[in-house]
């Protein structure tokens, strides 16, 4: 038997395995916290998307739920003003650098960004920040899927799954504002060793990787 701890998130009493993070404790119990970069079995959280803010009683500042270990008796609130402000600001920053063309986006129906926008009540067409998008060419060299690097949110899901189940051709390269998932020498995916398992497309939350023909996901 695994040890469990009980805690309260948004007034809901829940139980979770000891050692779990707040994020997974919440998600497993049907409480949604926006997140992009968290992977359940990762050795350590990437903590890079900066969206899963929660307020924990006894802590002065909001914390990211993916790095906070759930503790016995912990009281957390995903709807506090401070936490929501940080989540919204972070998300608006992401959206200011994401081409908004939902109507003709192949990921329209599976887009997690839209889900987060709805959850945080963020209007995509009313972003307070400057529009700063990349203008990189779309890679349509692969027969199965397209890659639009301009839509990449640098969450790392595709990179991780490609290493785990694919051929490991995807990874992060470049620095700062230019950091993105890409291939060796930024070559076309069609020219790489990719064997088209399609796992990366299923993992992508932002419509950067999309199937050419809509398939069941």
């Amino acid at each position: 038997m695994m040890k469990t701890v009980s805690l309260t998130i948004d007034d809901k009493q829940i139980e979770t395995q000891a050692g779990n993070t707040l994020l997974w404790a919440a998600l497993d119990n049907g409480i949604y916290i926006p997140n992009l970069c968290s992977l359940r079995h990762a050795a350590a959280p990437a903590a890079s998307c900066r969206l899963c803010w929660v307020e924990v009683e006894g802590k002065a500042q909001p914390v990211t739920a993916c790095t906070e270990i759930a503790a016995e008796g912990m009281v957390a609130n995903t709807r506090g003003t401070q936490a929501l402000r940080l989540a919204r600001n972070g998300f608006e920053l992401l959206m200011a650098s994401h081409p908004i063309e939902c109507a003709r986006c192949a990921a329209l129906h599976v887009c997690e960004l839209l889900k987060i926008a709805g959850h945080l009540n963020v209007k995509l067409n009313k972003n307070p920040y400057r529009k700063l998008v990349h203008h990189l060419p779309i890679d349509s060299s692969n027969p199965l899927f397209n890659y639009d690097p301009n839509k990449c949110v640098v969450c790392g899901r595709c990179v991780s799954i490609c290493r785990e189940r694919g051929t490991g051709v995807l990874g992060f390269a470049h620095r700062g504002f230019d950091r993105r998932a890409t291939t060796f020498y930024d070559e076309l995916i069609g020219d790489s060793a990719c064997e088209q398992c399609g796992e990366c497309v299923r993992a992508c939350p932002s419509g950067a990787l999309t199937f050419k023909v809509s398939v069941n996901v």
């Binding site: 990437a46 903590a47 890079s48 998307c49 900066r50 969206l51 600001n89 972070g90 920053l93 992401l94 200011a96 650098s97 920040y129 400057r130 700063l132 949110v153 640098v154 470049h174 620095r175 700062g176 504002f177 230019d178 950091r179």
Partner: peptide
Amino acid sequence: GKCTYCRLGTKQ
């Protein structure tokens, strides 16, 4: 470029 705030916030 790893985290959202620094990557995009400093650019803004």
